[in-house]
């Protein structure tokens, strides 16, 4: 797992009276997301949470929030938000054009917005998902937290904010570079596929299709076939698992995926690279790189180093 300062459950924070963000324009598929919830998957409750976990953690670190503090996940379109208290915020992940009352602001820098001002976000210019973190955090409703139900933002919604933090000056963070090379471990049913399909999976480019969503990234390419038809019993699956349904077109499961499934599993994307799948735009391609569990550990260690260096710079 990516290191977290506290448990992965969404933390409830004290509410400042009337501190809200009023949604003037919601954008498409915007939602409030934390780092997800574990311990309830045997009840069919998905892990949930931000699709680009590292971008959410980055935003929270820049503001001094706990890592799992919920933020607004943006997918596309124009978003306009009115703040009723002074707030520090930062946008991480996909590149958006950011303006406060028409004044342009840098991406991945924390900035202050005053009560009554309107924040306008337009994008994404590149990549797919951005995270708007606010000092004190954005409160999801209890039902959405307990059942990890993603509720899309609607015009007129009022998002309650946690207590303001004392922050003195703007700072910025360097975001990591995107590539379309997705490292993955071979899946338990890999040997059930034909040699040609196995080769195609690891060597071909796969195009992300338009019907991808928070449950899964659907890929198009060569049809992957089993050596013989196979019925599997329903079993647990998790974000990162690459399922191959009878269509032969793989699906990379994401945060809101159901907790059990019955399709053969070709591979599992490593945790350190799952954000890249979430940041791939429909129509773009990805490639899978076969790695070992040891290489997956090394990749997680690199993320820990990134956040360690970031924290040192923030604290300096």
């Amino acid at each position: 797992m990516i290191t977290s300062q506290e448990s992965s459950t969404n933390r409830q924070q004290p509410l400042a009276n009337d501190a809200i963000i009023k949604v003037i324009t919601p954008g498409l598929f915007s939602s409030v997301q934390g780092l997800g919830l574990s311990g309830y998957r045997h009840l069919g409750i998905p892990f949930g949470g931000a699709l680009d976990r590292q971008a959410l953690i980055l935003g929270n670190r820049v503001l001094g929030n706990p890592d799992s503090t919920p933020a607004l996940e943006l997918t596309s379109g124009q978003v306009e938000l009115k703040f009723t208290r002074d707030a520090w915020f930062v946008l991480t992940g996909a590149q958006y054009r950011i303006a406060i009352d028409g004044r342009d602001i840098w991406h991945s820098w924390r900035n202050k917005i005053k009560a009554g001002e309107i924040l306008t976000l337009r994008g994404p210019k590149s990549a797919m998902r951005a995270y708007l973190a606010v000092d004190g955090g954005i409160q999801p409703t209890q039902q959405n937290t307990t059942l990890q139900i993603t509720k899309q933002l609607a015009k007129g919604d009022c998002l309650r904010l946690g207590s303001a933090l004392s922050i003195a000056k703007p700072i910025g963070a360097v975001q990591r570079g995107y590539s379309n090379e997705i490292r993955a471990l071979p899946g338990p049913e890999m040997s059930l596929f034909t040699p040609q399909s196995r080769k195609a999976f690891w060597s071909n480019a796969w195009q992300l299709t338009n019907d991808s969503n928070r449950m899964g990234a659907r890929l198009a390419g060569e049809i992957l076939s089993l050596t013989k038809p196979q019925e599997l019993n329903s079993h647990a699956v998790m974000p990162g698992v690459v399922q191959v349904p009878p269509s032969g077109q793989p699906i990379v499961l994401l945060a809101d995926a159901q907790t059990t499934g019955g399709y053969p599993k070709m591979a599992t994307v490593i945790e350190a690279d799952l954000w890249k799948v979430a940041q791939t735009r429909p129509g773009s391609t990805v490639r899978f790189i076969h790695v070992s569990p040891g290489q997956a550990d090394d990749a997680n260690y690199e993320w820990q180093q990134y956040f360690y260096r970031l924290q040192r710079a923030i604290d300096a």
Partner: peptide, 20 residues
């Protein structure tokens, strides 16, 4: 982290990969 029964199978999700 999670202990998830499926149909005649059980999946155990560990906090720490070194315990696998």
């Amino acid at each position: 982290q999670d202990i998830v029964p499926g149909m005649n199978n059980l999946t155990l999700f560990l906090h720490d990969t070194t315990q696998v």
